[in-house]
Simulated assay, not measured.
Amino acid sequence: MTNLQKKMFIVITILFAIVLSMLGSLTFAQKIEPNQLNVQYKTLKDEKIPKSMNDVSIVYFTDLQYGKFENKKRANKLFDTIRHLDPDIVIFGGDLFDTSCQMSQQDIDYITNKLSSIQAPLGKFCVLGEKDEANNDVIRSILNQSQFEILENETILLTNEQKDGITLSALSNSPDVSKISISNQQYNLLISHMPDTITNEDLSTKAISLALCGHSHGTQITFPIFGGYKSIDGAKSLNRSHAKRLSFPYIISTGIGCTHTNLRFMAKPEVYYLMLQNK
């Protein structure tokens, strides 16, 4: 074999390996990753968490996007997981149905029953996503029937049958930061559907302990080195590929469902299991 032949063989081998890798990644992104569900366990330790809230658990999930891609099989996996985790508090971050879904009465009944079946003795809470607002009356009816309290530009106190507790603040897609009233003496959770909302400079003066966001789906498809394949409104300045240093820590969940395309790569669906601990 001549030197030229050796070089050609090496080039062809490399190209062949790249093609195989791309095909393998595409298969994984289409057939495997969208059907997976990770549980991210995180302990929140802070001296501001009262002893009465010690070992209280919170499940946070977002962007179910039930419809064209998120079918009953996938959704059942989510609800079975939440039931297994047996949380004290449940927080939903918005976007119940995908915009491509023509909601039938059967779909509405199914989601209502599944959300209603979630047991959370200390409360079920949520914010609305932009897709929820497109079907505002129907989504509000489903959430209300399922005993989810819809929070919009407000702060509530979460307790465990005691006077003290932690706060949960919510910013809607038309945020009004002035309505977030919290004390630096308390542990303060903040939830916003869109990550860009929490970059508001006025929040830097608030004593936020942890913010929870969704919306971006972890960019749904993330390329090594290059990051997400696209950014979307509401998650352009802050997403899994573009972090920012804020005055408080935050979590941007990859969410549950798929939108626009039935693909996920390096952005597995996930729920968060948060355990409160008095430090």
Rank of each mutant, 00 (worst) to 15 (best):
residue 63 D to E: 05
residue 20 L to Q: 09
residue 82 I to C: 02
residue 207 A to G: 09
residue 112 T to C: 03
residue 134 A to C: 12
residue 252 I to V: 08
residue 6 K to E: 09
residue 134 A to H: 06
residue 171 L to H: 01
residue 152 E to S: 13
residue 242 H to D: 07
residue 260 H to N: 14
residue 107 D to K: 03
residue 36 Q to N: 11
residue 97 F to W: 05
residue 239 N to S: 02
residue 271 V to Q: 00
residue 65 Q to I: 06
residue 27 T to Y: 15
residue 101 C to S: 13
residue 26 L to R: 07
residue 163 K to M: 14
residue 52 S to W: 10
residue 65 Q to C: 06
residue 97 F to M: 03
residue 217 H to T: 08
residue 108 I to W: 02
residue 220 Q to G: 02
residue 142 I to Q: 00
residue 16 F to G: 11
residue 216 S to T: 12
residue 29 A to V: 09
residue 116 S to I: 05
residue 161 E to N: 15
residue 83 R to V: 10
residue 235 A to H: 01
residue 264 R to L: 08
residue 184 N to S: 13
residue 93 G to V: 03
residue 136 N to Q: 11
residue 202 D to Y: 10
residue 40 Q to G: 07
residue 202 D to E: 15
residue 261 T to K: 14
residue 228 G to E: 02
residue 278 N to W: 10
residue 97 F to Y: 08
residue 279 K to C: 13
residue 136 N to G: 08
residue 7 K to T: 12
residue 110 Y to Q: 03
residue 160 N to G: 09
residue 133 E to Q: 12
residue 25 S to P: 11
residue 25 S to L: 11
residue 276 L to Y: 05
residue 255 G to F: 04
residue 156 I to K: 03
residue 105 Q to P: 12
residue 13 T to N: 09
residue 272 Y to I: 04
residue 25 S to H: 08
residue 211 A to Q: 05
residue 129 G to F: 01
residue 190 L to M: 04
residue 191 I to Y: 01
residue 147 Q to M: 14
residue 247 S to M: 14
residue 84 H to F: 15
residue 228 G to C: 03
residue 238 L to I: 06
residue 244 K to S: 07
residue 196 D to W: 02
residue 108 I to M: 09
residue 168 L to G: 01
residue 141 S to T: 12
residue 161 E to M: 14
residue 243 A to K: 15
residue 128 L to V: 08
residue 154 E to Q: 10
residue 167 T to Y: 13
residue 173 N to D: 08
residue 145 Q to D: 11
residue 136 N to K: 13
residue 7 K to E: 13
residue 56 V to A: 04
residue 76 N to V: 07
residue 249 P to Y: 06
residue 146 S to E: 05
residue 216 S to N: 07
residue 203 L to E: 01
residue 11 V to I: 15
residue 115 L to S: 01
residue 199 T to V: 13
residue 127 V to Y: 00
residue 2 T to D: 15
residue 32 I to F: 11
residue 198 I to K: 04
